[in-house]
Lab assay of single mutants.
Amino acid sequence: TTTITTTNEEDARRIATEWKNKGYTVHVEKRGTTFRIEVR
């Protein structure tokens, strides 16, 4: 599992989409101002 964190919502969406397009399972969680993107 790879975890990526960013405070930028646009980055979070872009990163999540990129990983999904590669065939990975992506889970995005917002904690306060931080977005945690888990890639499996």
Results as ranks from 00 to 15, higher is better:
Thr1Asn: 09
Thr1Gln: 09
Thr1Trp: 15
Thr1Phe: 14
Thr1Ile: 15
Thr2Val: 14
Thr3Leu: 14
Thr3Asp: 04
Ile4His: 06
Ile4Ser: 02
Ile4Gly: 01
Ile4Cys: 07
Thr5Ala: 05
Thr5Met: 12
Thr6Met: 06
Thr6Asn: 02
Thr7Val: 08
Thr7Arg: 09
Thr7Leu: 09
Asn8Asp: 10
Asn8Trp: 05
Glu9Phe: 11
Glu9Thr: 04
Glu9Ile: 11
Glu9Lys: 08
Glu10Tyr: 09
Glu10Phe: 09
Glu10Asp: 11
Asp11Met: 10
Asp11Gln: 09
Asp11Thr: 10
Ala12Gly: 02
Ala12Asn: 01
Ala12Phe: 03
Ala12Arg: 01
Ala12Met: 08
Ala12Glu: 00
Ala12Asp: 00
Arg13Lys: 11
Arg13His: 12
Arg13Phe: 13
Arg14Asp: 04
Arg14Trp: 05
Arg14Tyr: 05
Arg14Met: 08
Arg14Gln: 07
Ile15Cys: 04
Ile15Gly: 00
Ala16Trp: 06
Ala16Val: 11
Ala16Phe: 07
Ala16Gln: 05
Ala16Ser: 07
Thr17Met: 14
Thr17Tyr: 10
Glu18Pro: 00
Trp19Leu: 08
Trp19Phe: 09
Trp19Asp: 00
Trp19Ser: 01
Trp19Pro: 00
Trp19Thr: 01
Lys20Leu: 13
Lys20Pro: 00
Lys20Phe: 10
Asn21Phe: 07
Asn21Lys: 11
Asn21Tyr: 06
Asn21Met: 13
Lys22Gln: 07
Lys22Asn: 06
Lys22Leu: 11
Lys22Ile: 05
Gly23Phe: 02
Gly23Val: 01
Gly23Tyr: 02
Tyr24Thr: 01
Val26Pro: 02
Val26Glu: 00
Val26Cys: 01
His27Glu: 07
His27Cys: 12
Val28Glu: 03
Val28Gln: 03
Val28Ile: 13
Val28Cys: 09
Glu29Trp: 12
Glu29Ile: 13
Glu29His: 10
Glu29Val: 12
Lys30Cys: 07
Arg31Leu: 14
Arg31Lys: 11
Arg31Pro: 02
Arg31Phe: 14
Gly32Glu: 05
Gly32Gln: 04
Gly32His: 04
Thr33Met: 12
Thr33Ala: 12
Thr33Glu: 15
Thr33Asp: 15
Thr34Val: 14
Thr34Lys: 08
Thr34Leu: 14
Thr34Ala: 08
Phe35Lys: 01
Arg36Phe: 15
Arg36His: 15
Arg36Asp: 06
Ile37Ala: 00
Ile37Val: 09
Ile37Tyr: 00
Glu38Pro: 00
Glu38Arg: 10
Glu38Ser: 12
Val39Gln: 02
Val39Asp: 00
Val39Lys: 02
Val39Phe: 05
Arg40Ser: 15
Arg40Tyr: 14
Arg40Trp: 14
Arg40Asn: 08
Arg40Asp: 07
